[in-house]
Amino acid sequence: MEPLTESQVIENLRQTEDPSAQYYAAWWLGKMRSQHPDAIPLLLATLGALDDSPVDPDRRGVALNAIRAMGLLKDERTDGALLDRLHSNDYSVREEAARSLGTMGSHAAAEAIRSLLASGLDGAGREQPSTPLLQEPCEALLEALGDIGINDAATLATIKPFTRHHRPLICSAACRALLQLTGDSCWGEQLTQLLLHPEALVRRGALLDLGAAGWTAAVPMIQAAAVEPSLKLVALRGIAENSGNQQVLDVMDALL
């Protein structure tokens, strides 16, 4: 099969008969960091489907991919739409909007994200009855605050309670954000404890969080963790790019 050209992908997103072609097109534009002049307006147009009643599940999928693509394209024309979607009544839409705003480092989003977390462990962090979800997409919201990088007292006070959440992956996200924002090694040490957790899923999450925070002191623990080399390499990439430390490359070489 011939790979699609950018103009074909744009036309696939423009048409509305075939949502699966739109779904792929929205993903492609983000993945390829498309600079096509129609890309942003067309991605924004897909979000309208989220306001339909009832929401069409296929068009919702397209919109979620469009939100992810906006995070990768980092275009200020999408700021307003993504901020609005933080208040969506759809959990996944809030989650993806927060992730994208975090990736974009959107300072304008910090206050809205903080307010979603402000109700703390008993509010945002409480489990929804009979689903695996919490009231708010806490992991994405916490990570976004770390990525946005505003380290004022209000932000730190919002994040700190979540380091004691009963779910280890939420603790991990909170520690990651605090490590990014303060550089205080106590949060890194709490993350390295999670590298010893009996569940592989938790170890993998903590490993990637250590990498995202770029904490060089974690390199020996990452090297020794009982996690797949492929994830160790992703984590070490974050640290190598953050620190420019050549010894990190030597560790990566040994894991190939």
Partner: peptide
């Protein structure tokens, strides 16, 4: 694209 690949190739 990947900075870490550039670093490794320079090395």
């Amino acid at each position: 694209d990947a900075r870490v690949v550039r670093h490794r190739a320079v090395l």
